[in-house]
């Protein structure tokens, strides 16, 4: 084989490449990753992919079972609910609410949380004990209770719930980033960079940030799955997305009374949540083990 380099050295792949290689090695992680990608595509093109409008009521086809049941038809693949709405379309449109809402809340709360945590760790001026006391106070309130408090103040509704979940996620991000930055700041290479005369901003941007990426990425994946659970739980308690919106949790809440007659109304959105959260958790576990492999190699 022709080699362009005349040197015998082995090329060291980039860190990203190494993580990707370690991730590729396990089949289950790849399946989860591609499931998630497909979910994202469905979320973006949900308006085109849904066979019917999620609110359209087929009044002559109430409570049609899914197509694999005896009485089901292929036109309504997942069947219909008690108002004759196509469940497949509602599950597809629901990705926008549940998955999209989770991504949005995690992105916002991650930005705010990491900024506060990193700032508090970098600038010793802000006494970290004050921050910790405030954090402990917020962390003592279960996330659902915190969301309920926000809803009590601002009233029910989708935007309130998004805000509530965002607020609930911030403390964890602050804690993780604060601890990670403090750990990195204690290392030798940071001292070297300081001796080199790096400014605080450059030190953070060039030295600290790449080294706290690992705990942050793992925290982000965990936060997405917990955000999905919280959004769906609030929807299920009918505190979140309001009635016609095809949010998975509220779809299940409207199906409770049909538990005996039409279990598919509850089962299918539940399976959608389950598959989404499972693939996110699997991707998180895969990333974690790839990082570990990278460290030990």
């Amino acid at each position: 084989m022709d080699r362009n380099t005349i040197y015998q050295d082995d090329a060291v792949p980039s860190i990203f490449r190494q993580v990707a290689n370690a991730f590729n090695a396990r089949g289950a992680y790849m399946v989860a990753f591609w499931t998630l990608m497909i979910m994202l595509v469905i979320m973006i093109f949900s308006a085109v992919l849904a066979p019917y409008h999620p609110h359209h009521q087929h009044t002559d086809l109430l409570l049609l079972p899914p197509s694999w049941a005896d009485k089901g038809t292929v036109e309504f693949f997942f069947g219909t609910d008690d108002l004759g709405r196509d469940i497949l379309s509602r599950v597809i449109s629901g990705t926008r609410y549940t998955l999209g809402g989770a991504l949005l809340t995690v992105a916002i709360s991650g930005l705010i949380g990491v900024a506060i945590g990193a700032l508090a760790a970098m600038l010793r001026g802000l006494r970290s004990s004050i921050l910790h006391h405030l954090l402990d106070t917020v962390l003592a309130i279960p996330s659902l209770l915190l969301a309920i408090l926000v809803i009590a103040i601002l009233g029910r509704g989708w935007s309130t719930v998004l805000l509530a979940v965002t607020i609930g996620l911030i403390p964890q991000f602050i804690r993780v980033s604060h601890q990670a930055v403090l750990e990195v700041l204690a290392t030798e290479y940071v001292r070297m960079a300081r001796l080199d005369g790096y400014s605080k901003f450059r030190l953070f941007y060039r030295v600290v940030l790449p080294n706290i990426a690992e705990p942050l990425i793992i925290r982000f994946t965990a936060a997405i799955s917990s955000a999905i659970m919280d959004l769906a739980a609030l929807g299920f308690l009918s505190l979140g997305a309001q009635a016609p919106a095809p949010e998975w949790g509220s779809m299940m809440a409207s199906g409770i009374s049909l538990l005996t007659t039409a279990p598919w109304v509850i089962t299918l959105p539940g399976i959608a949540i389950f598959i989404t959260v499972l693939s996110i958790n699997l991707v998180g576990a895969g990333l974690q083990s790839s990082f570990k492999k990278l460290e030990s190699s």
């Binding site: 538990l259 509850i266 089962t267 539940g270 499972l278």
Partner: peptide
């Protein structure tokens, strides 16, 4: 992994069912 991904309210309803 599966247990961590199951929505609790869905699990409860399945148990009832």
């Amino acid at each position: 992994l599966i247990g961590q991904s199951v929505p609790v309210f869905w699990w409860a309803l399945m148990l009832i069912l």
